[in-house]
């Protein structure tokens, strides 16, 4: 039995890299922000992964504080943790560009995003070798998208 031809041969160490395992073990910004300006709840109904995301912004449109809590696999939790570290102190416009670039990188075929555009997020390239796990990496970014659009509930 073989994988579909457009998917590279999966390798576990591409999926479970040191950085990802570290963020899974010690998630950053793992906290509830009481009465946040923006928030959303992302749920992957198929596997049950779920996260609550909270953001505060400054009048100039910068993300001043971000936190998340919830449960899910190592990939979804690490992705959430890494996302919060990258988004903090960016303007909402910058955040939207990063989010769109990352989602394109993960979901579209043949996209080899440059490091300038998505930076450290390139480490999630290995997840694409495991097609069923891509939604784990994108869940928190979808939740972020919803929070920015004032949508408070997402089910995938």
């Amino acid at each position: 039995m073989s994988q579909p031809s457009n998917v590279p041969e999966p390798q576990l160490d591409h999926l479970y890299q040191e950085v990802i395992l570290d963020h899974n073990k010690k998630p950053r910004n793992y906290k509830v922000i009481p009465q946040p300006q923006l928030h959303s709840h992302g749920l992957n109904t198929l596997c049950g992964d779920e996260y609550f995301l909270f953001l505060n912004t400054s009048p100039e449109g910068k993300v001043t504080d971000i936190g998340f809590q919830g449960s899910g696999c190592a990939i979804s939790k690490a992705s959430a943790s890494i996302m919060t570290t990258l988004v903090k102190d960016k303007t909402i416009e910058e955040v939207k560009i990063l989010k769109d670039s990352f989602l394109d990188f993960m979901l579209k075929d043949g996209i080899t995003a440059s490091k300038e555009k998505i930076g450290r997020l390139k480490m999630f390239e290995g997840v694409k070798e495991f097609p069923v796990r891509v939604k784990c990496a994108t869940l928190i970014w979808r939740t972020l998208e919803d929070a920015l659009n004032n949508i408070h509930e997402r089910k995938e």
Binding site: L12, L15, L46, G48, S71, G72, C73, A74, R133
Partner: peptide, 25 residues
């Protein structure tokens, strides 16, 4: 360790198991 991570690693060893809520939440 989340069951889905267990499932993915076992799959790389050729072992097929079920992970999740088993339609019995």
């Amino acid at each position: 360790i989340h069951p889905h991570d267990i499932g993915t690693i076992l799959d790389q060893e050729g072992i097929a198991i079920r992970t999740g809520h088993h339609c019995a939440q």
